[in-house]
């Protein structure tokens, strides 16, 4: 698609917001990490927040509904996160690409026609699997036993479905109803009560 400055800024500013929320959530997640420590799997404590990583791409895809939006949005979010001082540095641009592509895949296959719960949920599931694959190769998760990996994937999928297929579309629909997303595809089909 042809990106206009206002589209880029909309996605970028929302990505900053999601970044801020994500930072806040990981602090809250510290407790979970501690709880899981005695069970020997503190790394699982990060998984419930994994859906927040995909929020930028889910939001962008759901609102704009055009080819390429997801990948660009997630790379944008990753560059922003790098600038916000993430300790992983530029690698997250790579993982951003993987996430964006993973999420957008199903929409490309369905020719960007369906954006209902089922498709969003499917996108979330695929994205969870793809990112776990990325973790297997790059983060060395292949060293972790299968049952734990399966548990991680399950938690990640639940998190992604809840945050990216339920919460994010609800927020976006609300925004469309509130009249702040004028001109974007998400507004079609959202009833607005303008006449009293």
């Amino acid at each position: 698609m042809k990106w206009k400055l206002k589209d880029i800024l909309m996605i970028a500013v929302c990505a900053v917001l999601f970044g801020v929320i994500f930072l806040g959530a990981t602090y809250a997640g510290g407790a979970l990490y501690g709880l899981l420590l005695p069970l020997g799997m503190p790394s699982l404590g990060y998984e419930p927040f994994y859906g927040l990583y995909f929020m930028a791409v889910a939001f962008a895809v759901y609102v704009i509904r055009k080819p390429g939006v997801g990948i660009v949005a997630e790379i944008l979010a990753a560059v922003i996160e790098t600038l916000m001082g993430n300790f992983f540095g530029p690698i997250i641009i790579l993982s951003g690409f993987v996430q964006g592509a993973g999420f957008e895949l199903i929409f490309a296959l369905t020719k960007y026609k369906r954006f209902d719960f089922k498709t969003m949920a499917l996108a979330a599931v695929i994205c969870s699997c793809v990112t776990l694959g990325y973790n297997l190769i790059v983060s060395g998760y292949d060293m972790i036993a299968l049952p734990v990996l399966a548990l991680m994937l399950a938690v990640r999928i639940v998190s992604a479905v809840v945050i990216d297929a339920i919460v994010t579309p609800r927020l976006a629909d609300g925004l469309a109803r509130a009249g702040v997303l004028g001109g974007y595809a998400v507004c079609e089909g959202v009833a607005k009560d303008l006449d009293c």
């Binding site: 109803r177 509130a178 009249g179 702040v180 009560d193 303008l194 006449d195 009293c196």
Partner: peptide
């Protein structure tokens, strides 16, 4: 009252 159905942001 006439705006009751509006979103506050509008």
């Amino acid at each position: 009252w006439q705006y009751r159905k509006y979103s506050p942001y509008m």
